[in-house]
Amino acid sequence: MREVSPQHNILYSCAGEVKAGHDHFVHEHSLSFVISGIAEYYTDNGMVSYPSGSLCLFRRNQLLRILKKPLDGKPFTAITIFLDQETLKKHSLKFHIKSDGIYTGEPNVLLDNDAFMKGYFASLMPYFAQSGKLTPILEQAKTTEAIELLLRNPSLKSFLFDFSKPHKIDLEAYMNSHFSYNVPVAQFAKLTGRSLSSFKRDFEGIFHTSPEKWMQKRRLEMAYFLISQKRIKPSDVYLEVGFQNLSHFSRVFKKEFKINASAL
């Protein structure tokens, strides 16, 4: 997989093979355009498929599992614009744009890829053909352009300019639904509206063990079920349940259940 990011806000991705098992904590809002191939995003509401030509706006502070696939002999390619909070706050102050309130809409919005958006992304392609040509000033200008293009849709104002922090939510319910995502404990703390210390304190009060030990046990239990009952191969399971390395998964699985995963 090749990724070109001349600066930190604009990323060009190219994958010649299926790229799976990418658990992603979305730190900032991101605008993503699929040039070729197909992207499958697995969220709380199931899987959504984005073929070439799709344009989607993803909201910050959420977990996504992504599968990137080549299609029809073409690699998966995409351009993503990261709309970070600092940039949006400066834009808000400079142009006196404020949110209408706390955003309560969908976290991922499929946008109309109209002539303006097509022209915008086409204008970025020459910069990636010649790596390093997108200077910081140009990047800033292109990021501002993306924001202004999005604001043609008034409903996106609250999406972009709601700067409120995640509120404190039911930790037990959230963790039981999201334990298979392989992201740092600090990200789970943020997603549940807590500091890291309060997250660990609340977690141990509910589950009577550390987050790391609890999540590994839950992931192994899920793996055991999928392999023994659903007859899914260990090589297809380890990523799904939150492990990044097959050999590590095999080792801790055997330690937990006293049997090789492949022997079930």
Score class of each variant (00 low, 15 high):
M1K: 15
E3A: 09
S5G: 07
Q7Y: 03
H8L: 07
S13P: 01
A20P: 12
H27Q: 12
E28C: 03
E28P: 01
L31I: 05
L31G: 07
F33L: 07
V34K: 04
S36H: 02
G37R: 11
E40D: 06
Y41M: 12
Y41K: 06
T43S: 10
D44V: 12
N45F: 00
M47L: 00
M47A: 08
S49C: 15
Y50K: 03
P51A: 01
F58C: 05
R60T: 01
N61S: 00
R65Q: 12
P70W: 10
L71E: 14
T77G: 06
A78S: 11
I81W: 06
F82L: 09
F82K: 10
L83S: 00
T87F: 09
K89Y: 04
K90W: 08
K90D: 06
K90T: 00
L93T: 09
K98F: 15
G101N: 10
I102D: 14
I102W: 02
T104K: 15
E106K: 03
P107V: 04
D114H: 06
F116S: 14
F116R: 15
G119A: 12
Y120K: 02
L124E: 04
P126W: 08
A129R: 14
A129G: 09
Q130V: 13
I137Y: 10
L138E: 10
T144F: 11
T144D: 05
E148I: 14
E148Q: 15
L149W: 12
S155D: 00
K157A: 07
S158W: 00
K165P: 13
K168Y: 00
E172D: 05
Y174D: 03
M175P: 00
M175Q: 05
H178K: 10
F179Q: 07
Y181D: 04
N182G: 11
V183R: 03
F188T: 07
F188V: 00
S198Q: 13
R201G: 05
Q216N: 11
Q216W: 11
Q216G: 11
Q216L: 14
K217V: 13
R218G: 05
L220V: 02
K230V: 06
K233S: 15
D236P: 02
E240S: 04
G242A: 01
Q244I: 02
H248S: 10
R251V: 15
E256A: 02
K258P: 00
K258E: 04
I259G: 13
S262H: 14
A263R: 09
